[in-house]
Design a protein around this nucleic acid. Sequence first.
DNA 1: CTGAAAGCGCTTACAG
DNA 2: CTGAAAGCGCTTACAG
Lengths: 348, 348
Amino acid sequence: MKRTRQRAAAADGVDGSPGMRTTLAAIAAQAGVSTATVSKVLNGRSDVATATRDRVHRILVESNYVPQKRSSDVVDLIFSELDSPWAVEILRGVERHMSAHGRAVAVSAVSGDGPTRPPSWTGTIARQHPAGVMLVTSQLTARQWRQLHAQGIPLVVIDPANLPDPELPSVGATNWAGGIAATEHLLQQGHKRIATISGPQEYLCSRARIDGYRHALEQNGHRFDPALVRWGDFRQEGGYHWASDLLGRRSPPTAIFAGNDQQALGVYEAARQLGLAIPRDLSVVGFDDLPLARWLPPPLTTVCQPLADMGAMAAEMLLRLMDNRPLPTRRVELATELVVRESTAAPT
Amino acid sequence: MKRTRQRAAAADGVDGSPGMRTTLAAIAAQAGVSTATVSKVLNGRSDVATATRDRVHRILVESNYVPQKRSSDVVDLIFSELDSPWAVEILRGVERHMSAHGRAVAVSAVSGDGPTRPPSWTGTIARQHPAGVMLVTSQLTARQWRQLHAQGIPLVVIDPANLPDPELPSVGATNWAGGIAATEHLLQQGHKRIATISGPQEYLCSRARIDGYRHALEQNGHRFDPALVRWGDFRQEGGYHWASDLLGRRSPPTAIFAGNDQQALGVYEAARQLGLAIPRDLSVVGFDDLPLARWLPPPLTTVCQPLADMGAMAAEMLLRLMDNRPLPTRRVELATELVVRESTAAPT
DNA sequence: CTGAAAGCGCTTACAG
DNA sequence: CTGAAAGCGCTTACAG
């Protein structure tokens, strides 16, 4: 008798109330079959009638059923793309902090933030029931967050692409301040025509960097000229494409704030093809300070974004959420810092 | 009665026979306590006498006890360092193939192949009981392999640092052929003093590349000069250090085969500081063909190593091992290919 | 502090 | 094809 309450709660699991896992017995009850049959369906045995199998299968999917086991110590780290040195920096910070706390980090990529991403990706995550989830530079609708939240899966976003909900814990960097620092550095060197190539327009960090650029210009009595602004893709290709475009103008910029280090590489290539020397003919500022930045010829002046620290901070926040420990704050922004190297100089 | 055999097998589990997991009941029997007590120790309850707790704990550790649960669908991908764009390329291939087969990839770094690595790291892995393990550029002693093997944990090595056992499945690239291709390309352009900076001397891939370099020289009637060979660290720093050294010689090389792309970046920097233009004053060849290679000023001539494909291939091999499906071969080497760009030219 | 016993979620050999 | 029943590894409320 003493177990009655618990039993009832388990049966309720089907309704998907947060934190309560659906049991095989609940599925069986709903399908009107025995637990043995549900077990067979789950294990792909052949001795189940097709009609029965289909019905059970449908209910299994609808109920987001996951076999119970002691909660895993695996935490998901989900990138939208797994294709840049940028990603390793975040991963390194996350891995270091999580492994120090006995957690494994499962890395995955949900290809493309756009239409290639399956609409139900958050559902897929929820069905795996990880101990916690970290999402990197990802679009997340309020609905998707609710879906994860309802399953009781702790979630932290790193470098959020948008801000769907002020309650959603996230870690970013001071992108706006970084945009200001980059632009003011160029202004101080005497540049008048400073162009910028930012990231995708729909990313928060792209917009913040552009706004910082604009703020610095206007604070210093310069006009913000939309003709000198391009939205890129945060890849070498985008930097190359738009730098070629900007440098082909009648009065080309003398400096380009490249939005990130990878785009700066593209700007270097565009300049090289046009026979422009950096920094003599063109100054370039990046963003991120990837390990390779100091090794480029010439070493890249860039805004350091502490990616590994952001990863570690997000990991710590997630651990707190997983243990129901309080979060000092939901939204953390780590400081960026300008690192002056040899890709910037006074215009000639 | 029908369960008797199974029961006995479970009890035998304590002896660590491959594939058989130790049960809590077996631990209890060995410790001379009830299963309830072992369970309490496992769950850190306080109502266990210290002496009992210690004894149970010792047996738990000795027996490599892992609570049973349906075998996880997580596969471990273990790097010795998680600090280079090189690592993401492998990770991308592994992740793509594994996620297509419903497996999650847990990434970790065992810091340092050397003394900083805990001697028992393979024991740590064994204790987690992952569904499978992939090790990247890692030293593995025969003893360590046996430890994992005894636990019945499938293992594949990517870019093995050494070859402890011909039975150990591994995926590499044709490093020797790549070394030849790089060197012959430079010879064909007319270079006579070709230096090389390889990776750490204890890595198989470093030695294979050097041997290819030597082979190409001797095949073409050139003398192999040890004074033109350096063992690096596969990082920018090593390339920079040894290129500075080589270029400071009385008769400096006119070309450097840099061992990998990151070291090529260091060579670029050394050349830049000495005022040498690439390729006019110095030709440089890399190895790997990281995505950034084509974006360097000038774009780097390099030997393409299909890192993502190597990751995917290793993933496929591991999946086969996990399912007890046959492996066509234990040792796979994917082809490397020279990619000629703008960092090489005839000496002037 | 300990363990017998009841219980949990799930699986399986077998009777029908 | 189905499910009652026995079983598995593990946990827990409770009696001693």
